[in-house]
Design a protein around this nucleic acid. Structure first.
Lengths: 209, 209
DNA sequence: TAGATTGTTAATCGATTAACAATC
DNA sequence: TAGATTGTTAATCGATTAACAATC
């Protein structure tokens, strides 16, 4: 156990925690109460030693001889990842992709809530997407600041992604999930994650027969 | 230079090549002819040494004192990743997400072509999504085998994802891009990549102020 | 108790970086 | 030529794994 918050936990470890949490969610849904590093590892294709080592950065969450109580470990991981609270997210882009993201049901029960949807096109501004009314990007900064939103998702064409990122950063956003197939330049206190399906596909074709 | 195909190139290297290619695409679009490992590294937040080392697994693509000719390096990376050919992809799931994927324009110019769209719901089968007519999952195996499709994308609810994966594998698919928030079990000759936006968001909240 | 599994240490393994000769 | 940048080697750094005492 070493839940010392000043520890510098490797980012690669942080990156695996959501995967562990997702597997625990699944186990809980299957009605299971207890699991082990061995079982988790088998399901995820990760060694049990790695799972134990990763978790040990944050504390001793298991019991020797028994394993981990799933609900307890879920709580602890949510705490570590800070998804024991709900985070509001601003979505920019109300095209096909933005619309699909706005409709996606999978955010709510895992700690996230889309708070507002922006678009630059006058044709889209004012329209409804589910329960959202699309706002103009002109109102992006004031809205995000007023609601103190720290997370943004970019679902605009690649050529506009950097300027949207600049606007989000200017509004105070500290984490950006970028769906545009382009690398973003942001200040070092802002985190960016990328979702580009083609990158994943290209990573697989290398190995195909 | 060591373009020995029996070399066992680390998967982490393969994973970066699509990122390099994407950055080169961008540079080309900006009208640039030549770049350097230093410039690429700056744009991507990667050291120039790593880029040179990664590329050196596949050959010497640059010129001392000059750098890399962008169009040539694009060609070579496409060759290495085998996206110098077009790959057909089967999409399973025609809900909001599947529809958005089917509409997405970004596949075509980067080596991929959605060949067919499947859904299990009788309400959706037969309907049009863009130029696609949604097919029944009952026809999945015959269609995929007839067209010799090796890649699949899963955009169905988590509870059906594993059985869809099993069907894809049974049909001969060797690479799966899974949008469902669940880990898949597949034979070792089948590759899986995951897209789960919540995992990315959870990886960022850890660091937020 | 006997069996099982954790948390942790030390050893191994692999990836990244620094440095530089080669050369355009 | 002088300046710049590659490709590659060796050194460093960090991550994974194996192993096991602790203990439930």
């Amino acid at each position: 156990m070493s839940s010392n918050p000043t520890d510098n936990i490797p980012d690669i470890v942080i990156g695996r925690l959501p995967i562990y949490l997702r597997a625990l969610n699944r186990l809980a849904q299957e009605g299971r109460d207890i699991t082990s590093s061995h079982e988790l590892g088998q399901r995820l294709g990760i060694s049990s030693a790695q799972i134990r080592k990763d978790l040990s950065h944050f504390g001793g969450f298991g019991k020797q001889g028994t394993g981990y109580q799933i609900s307890y470990l879920q709580d602890k991981l949510r705490e570590v990842l800070r998804v024991d609270q709900e985070w509001e997210v601003a979505l920019v882009g109300a095209g096909d992709l933005g619309t699909a993201i706005a409709h996606y049901k999978g955010f709510a029960d895992r700690g996230f809530h889309i708070a507002c949807v922006f678009d630059a096109s006058p044709k889209r501004v004012g329209q409804k997407i589910g329960q959202f009314t699309v706002l103009s990007v002109d109102d992006l900064k004031t809205t995000i600041q007023a609601r103190n939103i720290k997370l943004g998702m970019i679902a605009v064409p690649a050529e506009y992604a950097q300027q949207v990122a600049d606007q989000l950063v200017d509004a105070g956003v500290k984490g950006i999930l970028n769906y545009a197939p382009i690398n973003l330049n942001v200040p070092s206190d802002v985190r960016v994650q990328y979702i580009d399906p083609v990158v994943h596909l290209q990573r697989m074709t290398y190995y195909l027969p």
